[in-house]
Design a binder for these strands. Structure first.
Lengths: 147, 147
DNA sequence: TATTGTTATACTCTATAACTATA
DNA sequence: TATAGTTATAGAGTATAACAATA
C-alpha cells in the first residue's frame, strides 16, 4: 500500500487549498445524497430560478458566474427533463422568461430535503454556530477576493 | 442592464453553495497573482512534491484526489516545462520517483511569495484569527463529509 | 448600435478500461 | 495475481467568436 503518510504541512496553511479540498468533498457528498440525476451546479440554478421566476437566461448566467452561451445547454437539459420552461418574456421578444414547472418544483423539494439532512450533518459535526460562522466567513472571503 | 437584484436567499444558507462560489473567487484570485503559466492544482502538486520528494505518481495522485491516469499528463506537462523530473524508484522498476528540479523549486518559491501576499490580504480582510478559524473549519468540514 | 439567445468550435480536466512491464 | 505507469477514448463543463432576431 505504501501508506507513507505524506507531509501536507505547507498545503495546510492555505485557504485556497483547503477550499479546493472542501469543495471536492462537498461535491462528492452532494452526489451521494442527490444521485446522478442532477449536478450540484444545476441544483443551485433550480433554486435560484424558483426564488426568482421569470428572469432571462443572461441574468441567470451572470448570477451563477457563467457565460450566457454556457447557460444554453444547461437550460436545454433541464427543459428536456421537464424541470423548467421557457416562456415569452414580457416586453422583450428576444428573451425567454425562465421558470420551474411543477415537476421541477417537486424535484427541488425532494432534493432540498436531502441536502438539508446533509447540511444538518455538517451542523452536527461542526456545531450549529460554527456552521453559521463558516458560511459567514466564506461570504466575507468572497468580498475580500472580489476587490 | 436589468440589474434586477436577484434573491439569493435560499442559496445563502448552504455551505456547499458558498464553498463553490468561494472557490471560483479563489481560483480567479490565484490566476491574477500567478498568471496563466500554472494552474492552481498544479501549484498544489508542486508544493506537495517539494515537501515529499521521491514519491511515486500513484501516491501523489491519491493525495490530491485524482486517478493515477489523470496524473500522467500533469506530470508530463510539469516535466516538459522543466519543473520536475522522473527518476528511478529505489526497489521498484515499475515506478518513478518524482522530485522538483532546481528550476521547479525557483518557480515555486516565486509563486509562494505571491500567494503569501494573497493569503495575507485574506488575513487582513477577515482578521488573522478569522483566517485561521476558516482554515480550521474547512478542515473539520472535510472530516465531517468524509464519513 | 447594443443585446438575447443560439450555434460552432475548441480547450481543459477528468475518469474508465485495457495494455506493458514489472512485482 | 497484483500493481505502476501508460494509452486510447469519452464525457463533462466551460469559453470565445460569430450569427439572426429584436431592441
Amino acid at each position: 500500500m505504501n501508506k507513507a503518510a505524506l507531509n501536507f504541512g505547507s498545503l495546510m496553511d492555505m485557504v485556497g487549498v483547503e477550499l479546493r479540498h472542501s469543495q471536492i468533498a462537498a461535491e462528492k457528498a452532494f452526489v451521494s445524497v442527490a444521485g446522478k440525476q442532477i449536478l450540484p451546479g444545476h441544483f443551485t440554478l433550480l433554486m435560484l430560478i424558483r426564488d426568482n421566476p421569470g428572469q432571462n437566461q443572461t441574468t441567470l448566467a451572470n448570477a451563477v458566474h457563467l457565460d450566457r452561451s454556457s447557460m444554453v445547454p444547461i437550460i436545454d437539459d433541464c427543459e428536456s427533463k421537464g424541470w423548467l420552461e421557457r416562456s415569452a418574456f414580457d416586453g422583450d421578444r428576444r428573451a425567454y422568461a425562465i421558470s420551474l414547472t411543477s415537476k421541477g418544483k417537486r424535484l427541488l423539494a425532494t432534493l432540498e430535503k436531502r441536502v438539508d439532512v446533509l447540511e444538518q450533518r455538517i451542523g452536527d459535526g461542526l456545531g450549529k454556530e460554527n456552521r453559521a460562522l463558516l458560511i459567514s466567513l466564506l461570504r466575507s472571503l468572497q468580498d475580500v477576493l472580489s476587490d
